[in-house]
Design a protein around this nucleic acid. Structure first.
Length: 664
RNA sequence: GCCGCCGUAGCUCAGCAUGGUAGAGCGCGUGCUUGGUAAGCACGAGGUCGCGGGAUCGAAUCCCGUCGGCGGCUCCA
């Protein structure tokens, strides 16, 4: 993708940007400062502007936005009753949500064909500016558009419509000058979406597509997409024989084979070392608890529909969806001095959540998963250090798992405008008493002290926690996004994301500050004055879940796992029976060093064996015959599938170091 | 949960529109082959066509229901 053009030119008042830039090939818009203009726009004053090229980041976004319009135009020509809602560009293309009878992917080729026809006609794309009234009149047949206009254009104001032949769309643009720019377009899939993302509203047909400046880059994109599909952990897990999904016996619950269990156990072993070095003590808690704990923790109030619950002899039980209440129960066993803190418990805790049927999928969204969970019980003054320490663990771990770690950091904070989903303290305007109240939507509260109804939210605890997270992020030198409204119900958090093979973002690590659950359970410590002080909790997970992390590591490495994680580290292949003894000898030596090594003595050709072994993705294949026997060497075929002859002693050292240092 | 697509041998898939009771490749087993880096040869075993119901003389194929899987949406972290 080309860099932004820095070719700045003076556009004089009264000139259109197109007059200046049309001569530049593949220019789709103009940019002055941070403002984008259509080429048809007229400069209202002398202004320095640069062309936006079709193959620049901004240019492609414009191209795709126009692609969405082209899609809507084609759909309307074929389905005249369809009502378009909205069609934005995305990272990889565009989609358009359209209210219409459901269509299937078999209907896409006809729509795509029409798009290509419209593109070939090079229909000019014009912009009209209309008053709010005229906009509403213009789209009066489409309630989705009129709702958008009503919302986005204030009374007395005006906005723009883009027109290509009979098709008109309410849109602020900018757009490409004509449909001829949209020759390299492709429709990818069709699915459904709710209007405004609300499941109680109309279901829209969402058609996904993409557009590129030229056919070559579109083809390349489609090729990469196919390649990515081959790295899907569900496919690789099948080939590498890592796990089983039995949809009848355990829908959404992964079962691990011996190979998959090796990967899990190696991940656990490494995390145990990391936990130990950072002062996290391992604990073990049951999978089932009485209702009582879930009522106290707030899970029943908020999370019950997602829990597996059952009744026995009149008592209610819940299978744990989270590990925190168990750790709290252990912490709660005694009284702590301020000198005892922090207390840090960790557990590879398998949790069970009833995810709705349409959400379950592979290892990235299973119904049971194991969290490398940890709960720290702290004093206020210990928060920042602990967050920093966890951030360092995340950094260290990602260096052992990914060749090129690609993590993104989000700081999810409370939305002070819409605090209904969070635990908030309320301060009484009358008597000044601060009370902690779990807000239930729509209910009214009175001050527990003076019964006044004049209460204001008190965000001081949220602010303290959020500041601690910000401070730690800054100290770690990390770039992050702040997202209001995404906090956990009990506190703000840092979420760390990684991408799967298909470029989908998944949350892995999380660090959450919690001022609310400890008081719910009455957790306290005794300070230097002998007074009770509230304990503060940090919930954290470094891998997040073993399942999701394993999936991402498998996809990121295309199955060529770091040697330390690989179920099959070495296969020794004797060329013929006379080399079998040497192969066995090498194998024994490797096994004695705790290398996962096997001899393939089956009566197949070397070619055949290598072909067969490919699916298992072993770290190394060693081929040995008379030559190797003679000089105590091995012919090594590594992850790159290149072969290299080296002394066996050298290979032994190499792989030992790779495993010991967990090199990627 | 919602919309679309899909469910046939251990795996990948064909057959289904125009119903006549099942096919390929790989893998697996046996035999031959002693083979130097991505398929040596031959023979063989292997399937209640996800499950339940319906119309039909007859269903993998048509209809209804149901359970799963995939892509999204919503949810979740």
């Amino acid at each position: 993708m080309a860099e932004e053009s820095s070719m700045e030119v003076l556009v004089k008042k009264g000139q259109t940007f197109g007059e200046v830039f049309r001569k530049v090939k593949a220019v789709v818009a103009a940019k002055a400062g941070n403002t984008l203009f259509d080429l048809s726009d007229t400069a209202t004053q002398d202004i320095k502007a640069s062309p936006v090229l079709a193959d620049s980041r901004e240019g492609i976004t414009i191209l795709r936005h126009s692609g969405a319009h082209l899609l809507a135009q084609a759909v309307l020509q074929i389905y005249p009753d369809a009502l378009p809602n909205a069609g934005p560009p995305t990272d990889e293309g565009f989609y358009y949500d359209i209210f219409m009878e459901p269509i299937s992917s078999e209907d896409l080729p006809a729509i795509e064909k029409r798009m290509h026809e419209l593109a070939a006609k090079r229909i000019p794309i014009r912009k009209e500016r209309l008053s709010r009234e005229d906009l509403l009149k213009s789209f009066k047949h489409n309630k989705f558009k009129t709702e958008r206009i009503t919302e986005k254009v204030s009374p007395g104001d005006s906005s723009t419509v883009y027109v290509q032949d009979e098709f008109r769309d309410f849109c602020t643009g900018p757009h490409v000058p004509d449909t001829g720019f949209l020759k390299a377009t492709k429709l990818l899939s069709v699915s459904s979406a709710y209007y405004r993302g609300d499941e109680n509203q109309e279901k829209m047909v969402r058609i996904y597509g993409t557009a590129f400046p030229d056919q070559k880059s579109l083809d390349e994109f489609l090729r990469m997409r196919d390649e990515a599909a081959k790295r899907d952990h569900r496919k690789l897990g099948q080939e590498m024989d890592l796990y089983v999904f039995n949809s009848e016996r355990a829908p959404g619950f992964p079962l691990y084979t011996p190979n998959g269990t090796i990967i899990r156990n190696e991940m656990i072993r490494y995390m145990r070392e990391l936990n130990q070095s950072r002062g996290w003590q391992e604990v073990t808690t049951p999978h089932v608890f009485r209702d009582e704990i879930w009522k106290k923790s707030g899970h029943f109030a908020k999370y019950k529909p997602n829990m597996f619950v059952f009744e026995l002899n009149g008592d209610g039980y819940g299978i744990k969806p989270m590990n925190c209440p168990g750790h709290i129960t252990i912490f709660d066993r005694k009284v702590y001095s301020y000198r005892d803190l922090p207390v840090k418990y960790s557990e590879f805790g398998t949790v069970y959540r009833y995810e709705k049927s349409g959400e379950v999928g592979g290892l990235t969204r299973p119904r049971s998963f194991t969290v490398d969970d940890g709960h720290a019980f702290l004093r206020l003054d210990q928060i920042v250090d602990e967050i920093l320490s966890v951030l360092e663990m995340v950094k260290e771990a990602s260096g052992k798992l990914f060749e090129h770690p690609d993590l993104s950091f989000d700081l999810s904070i409370v939305d002070k405008e819409n605090p209904d989903n969070f635990l908030i303290s309320y301060k009484c305007r009358t008597c000044g008493v601060v009370s902690e109240i779990r807000k239930a939507a729509g209910s009214e509260f009175l001050c527990p002290s003076c019964s006044s109804s004049s209460l204001e939210p008190d965000f001081s605890k949220w602010d303290q926690a959020t500041d601690a997270l910000r401070k730690a992020l800054a100290m770690a030198g990390l770039i992050y996004r702040e997202i209001p409204g995404e906090a956990a119900f009990y506190g703000p958090k840092i979420d760390i994301h990684a991408k799967d093979a298909l470029n989908r973002d998944w949350q892995i690590s999380t660090i959450q500050v919690d001022f609310f659950m400890p008081p719910n359970f009455g957790l306290f410590y005794v300070n230097a004055e002998g007074k009770k002080e509230p304990v503060i909790m940090i919930h954290r997970a470094v891998y997040g879940s073993l399942e999701r992390m394993m999936a991402i590591v498998i996809e990121g490495s295309a199955g060529r796992l770091p040697t330390w994680l690989s179920p099959h580290q070495v296969f020794v292949l004797p060329v013929n029976d006379s080399a079998l003894d040497y192969a066995n000898q090498i194998n024994r030596e490797l096994v004695s060093m705790n290398v996962r090594s096997e001899v393939d003595a089956s009566k197949e050709s070397i070619s055949k064996k290598i072909r067969m072994l490919h699916d298992l993705r072993p770290s190394y294949i060693l081929v040995v015959g008379s030559k190797e026997m003679e000089d105590k060497s091995v012919t090594v075929r590594g992850k790159d599938n290149k072969q290299e002859v080296m002394p066996f002693a050298g290979f032994r050292e190499k792989i030992a170091r790779e495993i010991r240092e967990r090199l990627v």
